[in-house]
Design a protein around this nucleic acid. Structure first.
Lengths: 211, 211
DNA sequence: ACACGTCGGGACGCAACCGTACCGTCGCTG
DNA sequence: CAGCGACGGTACGGTTGCGTCCCGACGTGT
């Protein structure tokens, strides 16, 4: 039987090593060194570096966390942003995720695993959030979901994982409000560039809630 | 005197190798092999792998391209998105940029160089775009610039470099319109969650244009 | 208590890469 | 035309990591 404590030590070491040097430079020896374990212990558990990383990462990223229903789109968005911020504030996660995403562009198996773990999870959450809003009447049913996901995830991911400019938690509701408004407008193709609209798409979308 | 043709070959090989294996696995020998050049030729020109990459990347990324003034915010955004899309469609660029951004999180010198090259350039463009809109009266002068940049760059970067879902050029104007609306709303802290507003922030922001 | 099976640790051969020292060649200059 | 200086290419020792093999230790079942 494999000793669980050693398996755990390896998992932790992989994540730390992944954050420290990235997938490209990840070496089994370094993992073993960091975990205080022999290489054999690793090779006995995983066939290769790729499977090692895939199994561990999908294990960590695959855990689905439920998105509580706050009652309205802005609240749901704020909640989602809070969860995302919490996750991407972990120095290990914020280091690993962009690295693996970059690596996924060249390694199909990594891409596939991330798709199944992270993005499926996130798309489920995003879809959930959007579906709720549609059911509430906050968003149009024919909303472009891809565009909506980009609008929801893009700005916060950019800020936290790419730009890395400090972002306080108090800013999240504002971001949520702005993104919510953008989403409400996104399903109104009539908006365009004409400033002639007097009944704005926002009120037009919000109105059904009150009726 | 150093032979320019060899220097050029090295530059190209570095970019290709960077796209193929990433910064972490980039090896001088592989670059020399790909360029059809000896290692000495490289070491004679650059002290280390870091300086090699920094110099070449900043050379490529540092070229400032002007953002034409289309007359209104939506047009400017569409133009910016077109430029971004064009840049991020290059298979080499879309591979290198996320990789270096991930690497920048652990290597301060890379972070600094990217900041100076890419982000300074981009912030200049973004700032230019925002300044113009403010001067036109499309955006409020007290706009949160950081938030605005996140809203502008985030969605498209996410779509092109992370999610990598196909995105046709025809979708860009729609994205531009949505982002523009979001920006217009972003400076109206009164919006919030109350659906009681009858005069929507959009028309409130657009109105000054017509006056 | 003993024998067996399994696990972890260290060692080994092999390959890739680093950075450098040396050597032949080319072009410029007087 | 001859000499000099700088360039590019090859060869080398050292390091690191890969994947495997063998051995000692430990626990278990009878």
């Amino acid at each position: 039987m494999l000793r669980g404590e050693i398996t755990t030590a390896i998992r932790g070491a992989v994540l730390q090593e992944l954050a420290a040097v990235g997938y490209g430079r990840l070496s089994i020896e370094a993992v073993a060194r960091r975990a205080g374990v022999s290489k054999t212990a690793i090779y006995r558990r995983w066939r290769s570096k790729l499977e090692l990383v895939l199994e561990i990462v999908s294990g960590v990223a695959g855990q689905r966390l439920p998105l509580p229903d706050t009652g309205d789109l802005r609240g749901d968005l704020g909640m989602l942003f809070l969860i995302m911020t919490k996750a991407l504030r972990h120095p290990v996660a914020v280091q690993i995720i962009p690295d693996l995403l970059a690596e996924a562009a060249r390694n199909p198996r990594i891409a596939q695993t991330l798709e199944q773990a992270l993005q499926a999870n996130q798309r489920e959450i995003g879809g959930q959030l959007i579906d709720r809003a549609i059911r509430r009447g906050e968003l149009a049913p024919d909303l472009d979901v891809d565009l909506a996901v980009d609008l929801i995830v893009g700005p916060l991911y950019w800020r936290l994982a790419v730009s890395r400019t400090p972002l306080s938690v108090e800013d999240l509701p504002r971001l949520a409000a702005v993104v919510a408004t953008a989403l409400e407008v996104a399903c109104q193709p009539a908006v365009r560039t004409e400033p002639d609209v007097h009944v704005s798409p926002i009120t037009a979308t919000i109105d059904p809630i009150r009726s």
